[in-house]
Design a protein around this nucleic acid. Structure first.
Length: 223
DNA sequence: GCGACAG
DNA sequence: ATCTTGTCGC
């Protein structure tokens, strides 16, 4: 797929913060796409400390069947430190390379990280949504900011995620008795709509379980 | 000033 | 992100 280069990535942390503040104004937190959604992409980001590299794995599924129709991967040297709140400057470049390899342009992108549930309301899902122009959703395995109250134990249970008196996302249980994921709007989509898609895609796109499985396989392989 | 802190 | 023991559930 084609991706627009909005700016350089080799910024100093301080400059990156200012850029986020500006770009945050461009984020659209309401549904702004042509229904129906026919394809959904999921991006998993991570780093390999041993090789000093960032990695992005992208899967594209048709919707709502959730059959796998395409995958792409990219690996790049790490060129930005991990700073809470500036994750997108570390991980987005490799995500861009992987996304550009896709022959199809997905209708929705589920990102590994926060959307507007971010100190400056501009997490990596917002960034990816902005540069791709594709509706995006932040699906994080842990919290960056915000708090939430009691959450039911069954699949589909949600609790509002509040930060500075604003509802910035939801804690969502995608499977009975497992850790929830944290959903927040990325770009061109509302929280309600985003939550619905994440829940529907969860059988195939299940970050907590996927991550744990990958960790187990990695440690098991070492022994 | 102290603690918290996506991946 | 990664490391790590015992424990629970299918």
């Amino acid at each position: 797929m084609k991706i627009t280069k909005l700016h350089e990535w080799n910024l100093a942390p301080r400059e990156a913060i200012e850029l986020q503040k500006q770009l945050a104004y461009e984020v659209v937190t309401r549904d702004e796409f042509d229904a129906p959604i026919k394809t959904v992409a999921g991006i998993d980001l991570g780093i390999d400390v041993k090789n000093d590299t960032c990695r992005a794995v992208v899967v594209v599924l048709n919707f709502p069947q959730l059959d796998l129709i395409e995958t792409a991967e990219a690996i790049l040297p790490i060129q930005f430190p991990y700073v809470p709140g500036l994750l997108s400057f570390r991980e987005t470049p490799v995500a861009v390379v992987a996304l550009e390899k896709l022959t199809v342009t997905p209708d929705l992108i589920l990102c590994d990280g926060q959307g507007i549930a971010h100190p400056r309301r501009f997490g990596i899902a917002c960034h990816i949504g902005l540069i791709t122009g594709v509706p995006s959703v932040g699906v994080a395995k842990s919290l960056l900011v915000g708090k939430y109250g009691s959450l039911g134990l069954t699949r589909g249970s949600t609790a509002p995620l509040i930060h500075q008196n604003e509802r910035v996302g939801v804690a969502l249980r995608t499977k009975d008795n497992t850790q929830p994921v944290y959903v927040s709007a990325g770009h061109k989509i509302s929280l309600e709509t985003a939550t619905g898609y994440v829940l529907q895609c969860a059988p195939k796109y299940r970050l907590p379980e996927t991550t744990r499985l990958a960790d187990k396989m990695a440690s098991y392989r070492k022994k």
